[in-house]
Design a protein around this nucleic acid. Structure first.
Lengths: 119, 119
DNA sequence: ATTAAATGCAACCAGGAGGTTGCTTTATGT
DNA sequence: ACATAAAGCAACCTCCTGGTTGCATTTAAT
């Protein structure tokens, strides 16, 4: 859309955030992310154990989450542990806060206008 | 997965939020949403004018956003105006805040533990 | 009344997402 | 040394998503 297209930086901006939101936009992935929010790293097997899908499927989801920066993995021995990664979450929160802020200030302006504050 | 599956309410919980995140998980849609955050309702034509895609495509995106409750539409005359809808955004923010909160308390607990607070 | 604008509807299409199966590789435990 | 557990890789399949085109409908403007 224009406002994003006209400002090239904003386009990339949107794309970056959309990647993260897309990562959270799948119920399975959101559940995994939610589960990891207790800080405890978990192996793929552990995360797959009580899932109603294959280990490979879970692996793919974890890769997506990692690609979005929402989760980090490091191999320990033969297993790879996935752990919560708070930076991107903070980014997401900041973005939503910013949007909400724009909305609220716009609402304020409208309110004072409609109240006849024509000073 | 399990923790969500075992608690049926939590499963629905995740699904609901995932719908909203999925709606924001497309760069085009995120750009539209971002643009509408100034409070001004816009018609489909206006939103399509400077988009690099068909009006139909934009319409579909708007329907998705509306389905997620992020945007509301009402017909005025021959055109349908789409406007920002802040409630769901607030929900999303609250959810992310809650997740971040869980993470931080977990971090706290770990820190006090590792500091040898074995009282 | 006619023309033009704004939208809706439906069919269609290519590609990617989510998932599976089968096999290989790399560590662990005994 | 050997069996087993954890994970990686690759091919494959199905279905949904993002996008298109073509035509019909409703409303506004002249």
């Amino acid at each position: 859309m224009s406002k994003a297209e006209q400002n090239p930086a904003n386009g990339e901006h949107d794309r970056d955030f959309s990647v993260m939101f897309a990562a959270l936009g799948d119920p399975t992935r959101l559940a995994i992310f939610d589960r990891l929010a207790d800080g405890k790293p978990r192996s793929i097997s552990v995360l797959s154990d009580d899932a109603d899908m294959t280990r490979q499927a879970v692996t793919k989801h974890l890769r997506v989450l990692e690609g979005a920066g929402l989760v980090q993995s490091h191999k320990v021995g033969r297993e790879s542990q996935y752990a919560f990664c708070p930076e991107q979450l903070a980014q997401a929160r900041a973005y939503l806060d910013q949007v909400a802020g724009r909305w609220e200030t716009a609402l304020m302006r409208l309110k004072t206008f409609v109240e006849g504050d024509d000073s």
